[in-house]
Nucleic acid binder design. Sequence first.
DNA 1: TATTGTTATACTCTATAACTATA
DNA 2: TATAGTTATAGAGTATAACAATA
Lengths: 202, 202
Amino acid sequence: MAEAVRKSSRKRGEDSQHPKTDQSKTDAATEDKGAVDLGILGESVGFLLKRAQMAVFADFIETFAAADLRPAQFSVLVIIGRNPGLKQSQVSAALNIKRTNFVPLLDSLEERGLVARKLAAGDRRSHALHLTAKGSTLLTELHRLWADHERRICEQIGTDGREQLLSLLGRMIAAGNASASPDDADEADAAPAKGRGKRKSG
Amino acid sequence: MAEAVRKSSRKRGEDSQHPKTDQSKTDAATEDKGAVDLGILGESVGFLLKRAQMAVFADFIETFAAADLRPAQFSVLVIIGRNPGLKQSQVSAALNIKRTNFVPLLDSLEERGLVARKLAAGDRRSHALHLTAKGSTLLTELHRLWADHERRICEQIGTDGREQLLSLLGRMIAAGNASASPDDADEADAAPAKGRGKRKSG
DNA sequence: TATTGTTATACTCTATAACTATA
DNA sequence: TATAGTTATAGAGTATAACAATA
């Protein structure tokens, strides 16, 4: 029968603890049509991160559909609610959104009367961002929606699992930011760099 | 440099273990210009998953740029290498890619001589997918690239952290798939369903 | 009638260049 | 000269509808 690693029998780290690269092939088309062997993808942090992220976002989008809000829109409301008076470039940088893409995103929230672009004191180029009363009220409701979503998402891994996950992700993100450009969210017309001085020919 | 970054003693909520929703505001524009408070986003599994996934993919893309391969292309090569003879619909379903979007993806690999669409025995509608000799050789190299990438990504969390992370993500993904449609990757002209019979009424 | 691969199309997200008005 | 916001545009990724060939 199945001599290779079959996805159905849930065993992952059998005897090796580091990325392995075995390539034993079985003809899936003529042998086991039901299950597709993901191979190293099942051991790939990036692949599983993407899958998990898509699953979580699917729940988020469904949860927030009633409020007609996308994840990015929610994140902007949270940031502005927590940090009233920030400039657009500060909010967009905090969210890793290029300021050029941030404009229509903010527009959608301003047109709905949730956010206001106010004149910033001292610098007439920039806008100070604030929630409107309507936006603030909505955000309070959204916090409840989010808590429901968050609880639902983490039902399978429990409170401990969630704390572990948040910690692990935080460490990975910190490492990623360290090796990234100083201002990864926007360097379009700031510096005429072609290659991202990251690792390159290290 | 316009304004000086004043680093005062920042403290956030530190000793709570469940989704919290406090909204104590401080005027970030006039008090602490350097650091933006992410609020609940820092406790949001979805937000951190997305950030981590972006960081990991950035490394992957950079690593695989030499081979001119995107993550999705790599995943297709891995699946076909592991499961020779699969139909397009089987590979695309395994990767959560709609079969309609899978066509140009496969085209790119076939045009480069890495994958071959062969006539499937018994069903003249479908194509049996196989790696070419060139594709197989390349995949062996790619496995090494991937192992480098994977090791680099997990340097900050260690072998134990990686195993924990893979386990946690696997559990979340399994839960997500359970509540999703049977064939989430493609139901365009298969069933005329408008609402995704998931949770809905909640 | 249902399935497989395909084309066409649209919408979101992301990325780059260039403009304006300020500084 | 540099920065903040903006516009325009292009590219990925993802979504639905419809068609031809085959089952």
